[in-house]
Design a protein around this nucleic acid. Structure first.
Length: 436
DNA sequence: AAGCGCC
DNA sequence: CTGGCGCTT
């Protein structure tokens, strides 16, 4: 745990984040059903309230919905992660200013620490909600409590009572009327608790625990023996004991994965080599951007989960040295895949995973290799990944890459993005034009 | 390598 | 004609 004694925890997230981002730049999407689709336009990942009212659920495949879309006036958008990522950075930066501490939990969620009395913390929550609306035009909900799990619950309360003027998007467990939280927990199923999914919910039910309140009141040690230390912590947190450790700010992620489904199955090893070339570069670029190096490359490829025999393969290979060099990583990925894939099998997805991560060399270490240029005012880049990172930072992610066409070249397997919106905030050529 | 849960 | 990711076991 960090040093957060006596603080309140707020969990802030953006309502229907991807849809809200799309609406920000296309007001025609206001007041009508809108869904944002996953990569490859596969299934629904975000819904406007109007789309929810139509009964559309997250995870629904688009091909099942598409026939009715026109009759419903439903608008679909392909996911535009350039846009969402950019807006996310702005939201997170703004939220960080309101907290004594911040943990960015996902693209649209952040835990932040609030000080003062419970009453003051609630008022801060209301202020930051107004600030995000004013500065970024995005609607957020805020849940405030003493533990992360309770803050998640409080956020859920805020989000699911949009028309309650007393809540108005901000709910504090500590400031709720007596008995209110307990009555709610007695009504809500355990699966509404953060960290309790379908499987654990089923198992809990078989053991006689159905509601959030029953889970909160369960014996922690018994839960640990029947489930895991992770669920035990959830029980303690529901009871107000903060015990989910904060993410280590300094440590990057333990692994970097770049994995995608194909628009069309990949059958030949030649095409799969192109895939590994492209995915290896993307994974390597992320690794370099995080200032990390990898020791291990793992490749995976799989057949359709919904039809035909399961033909998933994977192979892990050690790199000769820890590196973020896209040439070394891409070579390793292509070679590993060639050794395990079966020619003629229709693979529908593949991935490159980098593991055994550690920090990249410091500036001092890099300088050590350049005694020969001592006195020069510019230290040349020692690593290809640094050069690529700088070019991409200035000219865009596909401006430069390995091989003919680099990352810009598209294969027949490239993901489908039929309903893509412009990159309003990250490409000069796609800036929205405003006429007054 | 698979299960699980989250977004 | 059905996502991607990270962590745990």
């Amino acid at each position: 745990m960090g040093d957060r004694t006596g603080e309140h925890l707020a969990l802030v997230d953006v309502n229907n984040f991807y849809v809200s981002c799309e609406r920000l730049f296309d007001p025609r999407l206001e007041n009508r059903p809108v869904v944002v689709l996953s990569n490859n336009d596969g299934c629904v990942v975000a819904r406007s309230p109007e789309a929810k009212a139509l009964g559309l659920r997250t995870g629904m495949p688009w091909f099942q919905i598409a026939p009715q879309a026109e009759a419903w006036g439903l608008v679909a958008r392909s996911s535009n992660y350039e846009l969402y990522g950019d807006l996310s950075a702005r939201v997170m930066e703004l939220l960080g200013r309101w907290g004594t501490w911040q943990q960015v939990y996902s693209i649209d969620e952040s835990f932040i620490g609030l000080t003062g009395t419970p009453r003051q913390a609630l008022e801060t929550g209301r202020q930051l909600r107004r600030a995000v609306a004013r500065h970024l035009g995005l609607p957020v909900c805020v849940g405030i409590a003493s533990t992360k799990t309770l803050a998640k619950f409080a956020n859920h309360v805020a989000k699911n009572n949009p028309h309650d003027a007393r809540i108005d998007g901000v709910f504090s467990v500590e400031q709720a009327p007596a008995g209110f939280v307990d009555r709610l927990m007695q009504r809500l199923p355990s699966t509404e608790v953060w960290g309790v999914g379908r499987k654990s919910g089923d198992k809990l039910e078989r053991l006689g625990i159905r509601t959030m309140a029953e889970l909160r009141d369960a014996e922690p040690g018994w839960i640990r023996s029947r489930f895991s230390v992770v669920l035990e912590r959830t029980v303690l947190e529901l009871g107000g004991v903060a015990c989910i450790p904060d993410a280590d700010e300094h440590a990057g992620p333990a692994q970097v994965i770049f994995s995608r489904s194909f628009s069309r199955p990949v059958v030949s090893s030649a095409d799969m080599a192109d895939v590994m070339n492209a995915y290896g570069q993307r994974a390597a670029a992320r690794l370099a951007a995080q200032g990390q190096r990898a020791r291990t490359v793992m490749v995976t490829a799989g057949t359709s989960r919904f039809s035909g025999p399961d033909g998933s393969v994977s192979k892990s290979v050690a790199l000769p040295r820890a590196t973020a060099d896209p040439i070394a990583i891409t070579r390793a990925a292509v070679g590993a895949m060639r050794s395990v894939m079966r020619e003629g099998v229709p693979y529908t997805r593949a991935g490159v995973m980098l593991a055994g991560l550690g920090p990249a060399e410091t500036g001092q270490e890099m300088l050590a290799g350049f005694e020969e240029v001592e006195g020069a005012d510019v230290v040349p880049d020692r690593h290809l990944e640094d050069v690529l990172g700088r070019v991409r930072g200035r000219f865009g992610g596909t401006a430069i890459g390995l091989g003919r066409g680099g990352l810009a070249e598209q294969g027949s397997w490239t993901m489908r993005r039929e309903f893509a919106s412009p990159q309003y905030t990250t490409r000069f050529s796609e800036l929205p034009v405003v006429r007054a």
